[in-house]
Write a protein that binds this DNA or RNA. Structure first.
Lengths: 147, 147
DNA sequence: TGACTCATGTCAATATTCTGACATACCTTG
DNA sequence: CAAGGTATGTCAGAATATTGACATGAGTCA
């Protein structure tokens, strides 16, 4: 296909493969989290908070690769469900440190197990070395595009 | 971080690396296409049509990993801009084969070059073997999640 | 032939996300 | 100290995508 001088062959394009892999993973995570009444962005936010408690809204947004406005509406819904908490006043600057509530931690555990299972399924055909290779290759792509 | 029994370590998680790489690539493509007045989904649709002329709305949707409703509104805007064309009546079944117009092909060429340059930049630190490895690893992940 | 299943195109309503904008708080720098 | 720059939280509006639903056309099978 495509005897073009300049162009992109979708079967060869790494970008297309990346997009496809992301899409399939997203669908699988969606399906795994749905029975738990949780969405992927919600899970991402909780997982982020679990590993780095006290992150601010903006920091969470960067970590989840969304705008801080989107993360804010997400946090509002999580607050309504009592899964996270924010102080009324900022201890320093404007940033409000977000904390996981006990209930949030509980819900996260189940979600984390579900997601972990999906990731295991995704990489079941890859050995440890290959998994590390994939990590490194992806990191190289990220680094190259970030400068 | 995370001495948990069950959980996901974001620094290790392949899913997180995948999400990050996808996000960075998407931003870079966005920036590259903006001067051309084109969005990433629009480009994806045109590129798909170039390599497989006559694809239907539903087929395009699957190829671009969006719902067929989203692809439909996308096609409507592309039709309005005279970049693609659809027959008034279906030649067989309900599917309407979409075609790239000459203008669409022209616009695609510029967009394709821009995207190609982004992809080259993304993989600049990878040799041919590594690029093929990355393709194969991603394909393995897709295959594993698709069954 | 008739009933069933499946894929498609499309309409409507909803949800999600983004961009633009503004005020606030901290931090430099002159 | 005052001024500019940066980061943050938040509001409002627009763009984008999704789900749900329905009718149409094609193929299958009894």
């Amino acid at each position: 296909m495509s005897q073009d001088d300049v162009g992109v062959d979708l079967d060869t394009s790494l970008g297309y493969h990346l997009k496809q892999a992301h899409s399939v993973l997203r669908s699988a995570m969606d399906a795994a989290l749905r029975p738990l009444g949780m969405t992927v962005p919600q899970y991402a936010c909780l997982e982020l908070l679990h590993q780095r408690p006290g992150l601010s809204n903006s920091e969470l947004a960067r970590g989840a690769f969304v705008s801080r406005q989107s993360m804010n509406v997400l946090l509002q819904s999580l607050e309504r469900e009592q899964l996270v908490s924010r102080p009324d006043q900022s201890p320093a600057g404007r940033a409000l440190p977000v904390q996981l509530t006990p209930l949030g931690g509980e819900r996260l555990r189940a979600a984390s197990a579900a997601v972990s299972s999906v990731e295991t399924r995704m990489t079941q055909a890859l050995n440890i070395n290959q998994q590390q290779q994939l990590r490194d290759l992806l990191a190289s792509c990220v680094k190259a595009l970030s400068e």
